Amino acid sequence: MPVTDITTDPENLTMTITADFPVPVERVWAAYSDPRQLERFWGPPGWPATFSTFDHSVGGRARYTMNGPRGETESAAWEFIAIDEPHSFSVLDMFVDDDGNTVDGMPSMRMEFSFEASAAGTRAVTRVFFESAESLEQAVSMGMVEGTAMAMAQIDAVLADLRELAQGKGTVVELLDDTHVRITRLVEGPRELVWRAYNEEELVRQWMLGPDGWEITECVIGTEPGQRHRTSWAPVGDTEGEPFGFEGEVLLVDAPRRAVTTERMQGTEGPETLNDLNLYEEDGATLITVLIEYPDRETRDMILATGMADGMEASYARLEHEVLRSAGR
């Protein structure tokens, strides 16, 4: 995790975020000055940012929208006030409405980003200057400290070669906080085919089986917001276990990149989880990221203790085989 310190200073109306990266200054600069790279970490998990405009010049503006898992949106804009490539840049950051106008009552701030060479690679220091103590307090109460730390934790995947970062590691489970778990798995093959494997019944039945000895007995796929999904499994032959299944609602679809659904055990009222699937392709490989939101820590620990990750790895291995077969590799 790159963030080493986040300090708020109410007396001087500032927040300072310090992060260290094992890459040269120029590589970090590229991540912050390219909107396609920047939007992969500018926004905490579950709230990815999309930059619609990006004029990286003094006086230019950038506009972005953070997209929540239930279709919520928060839009903001940067105005670039200073740029010293590749060492620093400064922006005015403000919440905006759909027309790009500043939203009254929301905190605005000046942000200074600086990048210096260090023994490990690069030290990045972001200083945020607030207009008033009330603005700083409001930003903190809105979760800016926690959100910044979680957002910055995503930058490792941006700076590193994707295969170098994830190949051979199998299914990786990360506990982000008491209610959020991030699961990642690199699959050799293009994103379009991975998306199809998640959204076509014939393909789902071939890979989403969990441990050996189980079969899918029911598969209803929702492909649009508001639709229901339902999948059931049963043991085969001498395999021990009772039939079970999950069902839920599709909340968001952004093909072939993102899908958000609710999920709960069939025949129960809960507990319900929120599953946020993201697919990112680089050089013919696709990183699957599933962000799961649990209602509480106890539910999180109970579900993880079932061996869920092992079952997912068995399924992902089958998915990769099917994707490579479809791609003729």
Rank of each mutant, 00 (worst) to 15 (best):
M1L: 12
D9C: 06
L13T: 10
T14R: 05
A30Q: 13
S33I: 00
P45V: 01
P45T: 01
S52G: 15
D55W: 14
A62N: 00
M66L: 07
P69V: 05
R70F: 11
A76S: 15
A77I: 07
I81F: 05
I83T: 06
H87C: 03
S88M: 14
F89S: 12
F89T: 10
S90C: 05
D93Q: 15
V96I: 10
D104M: 13
S108Y: 08
E112T: 09
E112D: 12
F113T: 13
A117P: 00
G121F: 01
R123M: 11
V125W: 08
R127V: 04
F129N: 07
E134L: 09
E134D: 14
A139R: 12
S141Q: 12
S141G: 10
M142C: 05
V145C: 13
A149L: 06
A149M: 12
M150S: 14
D156C: 01
D156P: 03
V158K: 05
E164M: 09
L165E: 12
A166H: 09
G168K: 00
K169V: 07
V173C: 08
D177G: 10
I183F: 02
I183Q: 02
L186M: 03
L186Y: 04
V187H: 02
E188S: 15
P190K: 06
R191N: 09
L193D: 08
W195D: 02
R196L: 11
A197Y: 06
E200N: 11
E202Y: 12
Q206W: 10
P211C: 02
P211K: 02
P211M: 05
D212G: 06
E215G: 15
I216D: 02
C219K: 01
V220R: 12
T223M: 08
E224M: 14
P225V: 01
Q227G: 05
W233F: 06
P243V: 09
F244Q: 03
G245W: 00
G245C: 04
F246G: 12
E249F: 14
E249M: 15
L251Q: 15
L252Q: 11
D254C: 15
A255D: 07
R258A: 00
T262P: 06
R264K: 13
G267K: 02
G270E: 09
P271T: 11
L274P: 01
N275I: 01
L277A: 15
N278S: 11
I292Y: 04
Y294G: 00
D296K: 04
D296I: 02
R297Q: 06
E298T: 11
T306A: 08
M308I: 14
G311R: 04
E313R: 03
Y316A: 00
A317C: 14
R318I: 03
R318C: 01
L319D: 04
L324R: 14
R325H: 04
